[in-house]
Design a binder for these strands. Sequence first.
DNA 1: CAATGTGAAGCCCTTCACAGCG
DNA 2: CGCTGTGAAGGGCTTCACATTG
Lengths: 210, 210
Amino acid sequence: MMVVKRIPEICATRLSSYLRVLKTLGERKLETISSEALADRINSNPAQVRRDLAYFGQFGRPGIGYNVEKLKGAITKILGLDKRWPCVLVGAGNLGSALYAYRNFYKEGFEIKAIFDNDPNKIGKAWGCRKIEDAKDLSTIVKQRKIEIGIITVPAEASQEVADKLIAAGVKAILNFAPRKLTVPQSAKLRNVDLSVELENLAYFLSKPR
Amino acid sequence: MMVVKRIPEICATRLSSYLRVLKTLGERKLETISSEALADRINSNPAQVRRDLAYFGQFGRPGIGYNVEKLKGAITKILGLDKRWPCVLVGAGNLGSALYAYRNFYKEGFEIKAIFDNDPNKIGKAWGCRKIEDAKDLSTIVKQRKIEIGIITVPAEASQEVADKLIAAGVKAILNFAPRKLTVPQSAKLRNVDLSVELENLAYFLSKPR
DNA sequence: CAATGTGAAGCCCTTCACAGCG
DNA sequence: CGCTGTGAAGGGCTTCACATTG
């Protein structure tokens, strides 16, 4: 029987960082990289790097290190970045606009295939070549365009309702920027980016007696 | 001799969430709240809540729970939110603009006292009643306005240089949105918000064999 | 009797340390 | 001899469980 070791949640986050390092490395013609060199670049340590990679297979060679190209390919596959992901943005405010304009998302395979709002003044307006659509059509359109990832940038009050609609429409993963704890089914993945909490954390640090 | 228990880093993050719950509670006239009720609101558990609060003192009463107003005040103080924090925004792009417009920051005590960019086309332009200033004046202005918190929304390539300038100007805490691991002195606090990593995490979840 | 505060246990992630491979 | 992969140790956060309090 195959024993599956539980993989820490954080591990995927670090894989993203490793991948980014490997990508910026491409310019210099390094053939291989050691766990130590990789660790240095992201303020981690070699044991952590080796452990993280070992969860997914044996990518290195003792005495040599990791082949950069091979490792890049492996992590890309592990993270599911060898395909493009259709996303939907709900909430056409300032933050939504900034995210929509963020070119890196597109480069990394995330494509915003629909933008929704419920404000009549916004519906119909175009952002680049994409029109803001009416939130009441969310379900139909999300299904039609086979969208799998939802990004919520609406005010806190509306966020749970939006999440419910996204889930009902078949979205399985949500990135929530609204400052409220959302409830989603076990089967779905939810990540929160809470800007106030981030700033408050800095304030806490600065206030701590030291 | 006083024994100081080490307080988990994450704890402050949860305190922020507790505080937010308590604030939204104000409307109903609840006098007290139990650790269980508080936990339910943020998808945590009562033991965690009690432990978190106990790090900082005894705020509850056995058999009764926590007095809402008293607890609100206590957490506000612990997090250092009983004063206003002068902040600086470096990078007047889309994301910077969205953050600047985010009214909640101001409400919670974070005031953006300066906006910098190095693009001649942006310098001098006004966002609301504040002008974008030349990044080369950063040091002088940050010191003058006694700014303690820096928010970095420049492209990755420029981010480390900006961080260095902020630190040199006396900033002690940085919120970094650039997709690069920054290096700052031990004495300073750095938090990263990495939007690509967040999305990649969702992709990883969706790709996992299950 | 309800609910806190807290030792102690449990659990999970990180780090050590080394066998083994190239 | 350098460096990976990994069993085992370590460490820190979470959860249990209960004495204690109002």
